[in-house]
Write a protein that binds this DNA or RNA. Structure first.
Lengths: 413, 413
DNA sequence: CAAATTAGTTGTGCGAATGAACTTATGCGG
DNA sequence: CCGCATAAGTTCATTCGCACAACTAATTTG
């Protein structure tokens, strides 16, 4: 679904780039470490070609050979290939309403560093938050570089509408931020030393992380990120659909009841008014800033208010999601953010609305499940989305040149 | 956003296929017939390479050279290239609730043949309608082949949920059809002689036709097809988003009012109940089968009922579209089907809802406009979508082999 | 009419993948 | 314990598409 403005003519270098990427992906997405021969069989390339490409990727520090496995029948034992750890990493950062943090992730998916600052950022000062974020990033970059890891770049997840082309945060209603030119921030201190710096919507990136949790499956689903605001990310065949300018996924301001209560956005009956964190907490008789655990406790204790608030959220979520599913032909919905811990209670109501309101539900019942990729998913997604630029073109990250004849970094003397 | 299940390894033939397609597209999408040198400049390929590729495409009958244009400054006059007419064509067929028809379209976009049978197919017999469609197709195929044109294939547009993988029409509520195995039909008489036969949703294909109307612009919009049912097609950067199984675009069963009137689909408050053709006609005090012109006349005459019905439709459409726009980051809505003639009256109400309900509307007002690609758009789209398979791989349609040394078909002797 | 300019063609060289033969390393059966 | 079957990985000549540069062709300009 995405094509660059003008596809450039393909030369032979394009061929190699393509196949290099193909081989790298094949290894990274495999459920069990494949050998060169496996990759050759799966891609249709010859063993000779794959071997040459793998050698480049190994030399560039993107893949590693594991010790040969013996005992799998006759023949020379295969050398399994896996993503190399400790050579390339990316930093994912996130500003959210209730926390701010960062995580550095390896090509092999390992977390190399992590920071988290839990604090209320409702109506906060952008410059203070951004300074905090920058110093966190600076700190992590220093730590990681010290251990000899090359940093591909950083991605920043934001809970609002981000114009990825211009580097602007148009609107983050719950942070109280509006029309921020983040492009300047990105050309300053820790970020200016990085090749790739990206902004994106929090929900889109969380969806990315969830998609990467099972790369071999190339899943398709709609990820719903329930926080104070409600965003969503559409994953299609393992790829995230980001939209032309990156504004997709504003599920929270989808209309559930056209004559419903007014919303701060100027519309009426938005999903957020029924299923946003504040609405649910308030409906349950809690302070909006209360942690989810307290709500779970109330539900456990059988509180009628809490039950009603959650049921109403599930109903509204179901209505909004049914609209989305009717529109884009997706059969799985993943509940993330603060919906994840509530999933057991939320799922039946959501599923019921999907069942009655989705036209295709009659022969293909949409599934609903909680997120599988853990906490603070968006910052992981931000890191992974930056690593993607390495997957997409390994040759521009050192896998292009011929492998050096031998020892160490004695090249180009 | 779309990738095949497993991308095959690229060999050198892949390179040529890619560039062949690139050159063909470049010529077809150009707003003014380009020369070989123009194409070279735009693609980044060398003039030599482009020349060789163009020669193949000309030999295969996909491109034609126009007489050299002189008087554009110094230098040897350029030979403009255009899509060749009269060598390749595709057949687009459509079954709709109020008509059934077909259209054969040329590579150059010219209509070579056309058939239309206006009749009421509400709750009709599938086999009768399909027989009629098949005989129409047979007739057109014969006529076109007689004039020496090669037929690439046929596409069939259907007003319902089509499973493109299985070749099944799952549900077409207004035809009264359900779970039809069309795969058999497609392996029978006129269709069995064609290389490409495709099924798709009517709205998706109409969106395709609309997208092809301005190929040089690579437009992005949401096409709304208002008929008895309401479907939509998402066009993104000139490409139609068809969904995994082709079920996308069921806008008509999007919820506008969760506790609204029950719909035949089993849900409540579906858009179709407010803005479907039957609802609008009935609301205006007309018989559902009345032609749109009568409704326009009533509006002209100042009928309060008609005005109210259309306004209500515009409001509901606006609500439903706002949800869609919030979800997918599209800034243009195109009104097609019976909404096209009503567009002048409908647009303000739709635009008003979009303005208040779309979160990004504050800084990027969504545009609303009527369709530009004429009547029975879906069958044109069906033909164009089949031609796409030729654009996508010209080499498999005769542009692969080396150009014959000279005269006629005296090759391979 | 010569010089400048641009379009299109020709021929050489390079690079990436192929394919077949080869080397390496194991299991298995006598 | 040896030799054969088997499979992984490597080597090298071949193939093929594109780049590059030199060339020819056809026009405008002065």
């Amino acid at each position: 679904m995405q094509r660059m403005t003008t596809t450039p003519g393909a030369r032979q270098a394009t061929l190699r780039r393509h196949n290099l990427r193909l081989v790298l992906r094949e290894v990274l997405e495999a459920s069990v470490p494949p050998s060169r021969a496996d990759v050759a069989a799966r891609t249709g390339l010859t063993r000779a070609t794959v071997s040459a490409l793998v050698d480049r990727l190994v030399a560039a520090g993107m893949l590693t050979e594991l010790p040969p496995v013996t005992g799998r029948g006759a023949g020379r034992p295969a050398v399994p290939l896996v993503a190399a750890g400790g050579t390339f990493a990316a930093i994912g950062l996130e500003i959210n309403v209730s926390y701010l943090g960062g995580r550095a992730v390896d090509l092999s998916g390992r977390t190399l560093a992590e920071r988290l600052e839990v604090r209320d950022f409702h109506q906060s000062s952008p410059s203070k938050a951004l300074d905090l974020l920058a110093s966190m990033a600076r700190d992590m970059i220093k730590e990681i570089r010290a251990s000899g890891v090359r940093i591909v770049g950083a991605g920043i997840a934001l809970p609002g509408i981000v114009d990825r082309e211009l580097g602007t945060l148009r609107l983050a209603p719950n942070l109280g931020w509006r029309d921020l030119q983040l492009a300047d921030v990105l050309t300053r201190s820790p970020f200016s030393s990085l090749e790739v710096v990206e902004l994106a919507n929090e929900a889109n990136l969380a969806a990315w992380a969830e998609a990467c949790a099972h790369p071999e499956a190339r899943p398709s689903f709609l990820y719903v990120s329930g926080e104070v605001g409600i965003g969503c990310g559409l994953v299609y065949d393992g790829q995230v659909f980001q939209g032309r300018r990156g504004w997709s996924g504003e599920l929270g301001h989808t209309t559930v009841q056209p004559d419903g209560p007014p919303c701060a956005c100027g519309s009426r009956g938005c999903l957020e008014g029924y299923a946003g964190r504040d609405a649910v907490m308030t409906g349950a008789g809690l302070d909006p800033l209360t942690p989810v655990e307290d709500l779970l406790a109330l539900l456990e204790a059988g509180s009628a208010d809490a039950g009603r608030a959650v049921d109403r959220a599930g109903w509204a979520l179901g209505v909004a999601l049914a609209n989305a599913v009717n529109l884009v032909d997706i059969d799985e919905v993943v509940l993330g953010g603060f919906y994840a811990p509530l999933a057991e209670r939320l799922t039946p109501a959501v599923a019921e609305q999907l069942q009655t309101r989705v036209l295709s539900a009659a022969w293909s019942r949409p599934r609903v499940r909680p997120v599988a990729s853990g906490q603070q998913t968006a910052m992981t997604g931000a890191a992974l989305s930056v690593l993607q630029s390495l997957f997409d073109d390994p040759s521009s990250w050192g896998a292009g040149a011929d492998a050096p004849p031998s020892v160490g970094s004695a090249a180009a003397q």
